[in-house]
């Protein structure tokens, strides 16, 4: 196995892990406010397809990213209406949102299958200019990749260092008490869902516009569900989400590495490694999980009449 192959694998892990981290951050915000969004897969698909379509039509990837982000926010508003205003079951609403996303994204993306787009510029990782050309091409990343770690810190700051974040977490812990202390749980949950959806939209934009640069149906391939798992894995903490996304991408990279080095294991079994690893780490960390979950996660706030 050559050094080049290893670098190639690391590079592809970074590319695929970025969208996952954005999505996970979005879900952290959703769940901190007390809402589980199982429809993330559908949100990602609609964001990816609409962003890709706009990029393809206008030729501007930045406009595409903007549309992706807004589409993500709007998709989460549908969920918000169901689970906040109509007080519906969160898991079932989320799955319905997923099916909605399957359908809508296929409809939007239908005429864009196979189209080529202008993508984002790719910038070399600073400090690596001296490397041979073959290597530097692996470490040219798009701006969204460079932004993802600062974004995790921004989300952390928002949640833990601002009044808005305090209110949001209070609603996630106990909406009645938050209401009694002058917060508006409905409004805060809508805001959390919108911001969370925008972050998921950013992840989808990175996936479709910056990384894959094409649109195929179901291109998110389960990322939404992985993000939901990673949120629990990272114990609802945006900075630990970085670790979670890293471990998951490393598992994906490891699996690619094994494949490229010609290990005689079925690729199907290798594909299960990231999921199994996440499961094992969850079990290993399981003991003190209860203390970190938002206390009213999944509960409906009935309102005070």
């Amino acid at each position: 196995m050559t050094l080049l192959a290893i670098f190639g694998v690391i590079s592809s892990a970074i590319f695929s892990g970025t969208s996952l981290l954005y999505t996970t951050l979005g879900e952290v915000i959703d769940e901190r406010s007390g809402i589980v969004n199982l429809g993330l897969e559908g949100v990602l698909l609609v964001s990816a397809s609409s962003g890709f379509a706009v990029t393809s039509l206008t030729g501007s990837p930045y406009l595409g990213i903007l549309v992706s982000v807004l589409a993500g926010g709007m998709m989460n508003m549908i969920l918000g209406y169901l689970v906040i205003s109509r007080k519906a079951n969160q898991l079932a609403s989320g799955l319905a949102l997923m099916f909605f996303g399957f359908g809508l994204s296929a409809l939007i993306g239908k005429s864009f299958v196979g189209t080529k787009i202008n993508s984002l510029p790719r910038l070399l990782l600073p400090g690596l200019e001296g490397l041979p050309r073959l290597y530097t091409s692996l470490f040219k990343f798009d701006p969204l990749i460079y932004l993802v770690i600062p974004m995790a810190f921004l989300v952390w700051w928002l949640l833990f260092r601002t009044r808005w974040g305090l209110g949001l977490r209070a609603v996630g812990e106990n909406a009645d008490i938050a209401y009694a202390s002058g917060r508006n749980p409905h409004l805060i949950r809508y805001q959390a869902l919108f911001v969370g959806g925008m972050l998921a939209g950013l992840g989808a934009a990175q996936l479709a516009i910056a990384y894959a640069m094409n649109w195929t149906e179901y291109m998110t391939a389960g990322r939404g569900f992985i993000a939901v798992a990673l949120v629990i894995f990272s114990k609802w903490h945006p900075l630990r989400a970085i670790v979670g996304a890293l471990i998951f991408s490393a598992a994906v990279a490891f699996q690619l590495l094994l494949q490229s080095s010609g290990v005689q294991i079925s690729p199907f079994l290798l594909d299960t490694i990231p999921y199994l690893l996440t499961l094992i780490v969850l079990i290993a960390w399981g003991g003190n999980r209860k203390h970190s979950a938002p206390a009213s996660l999944g509960r409906v706030y009935q309102g005070s009449e």
């Binding site: 549908i78 169901l82 079932a92 609403s93 799955l95 319905a96 949102l97 099916f99 909605f100 399957f102 359908g103 809508l104 994204s105 296929a106 409809l107 149906e217």
Partner: peptide, 13 residues
């Protein structure tokens, strides 16, 4: 076919 998912989702919504 995937548009059928829309009708499904609308019904459930």
């Amino acid at each position: 076919y995937s548009v059928i998912n829309l009708l499904l989702a609308f019904t459930v919504f």
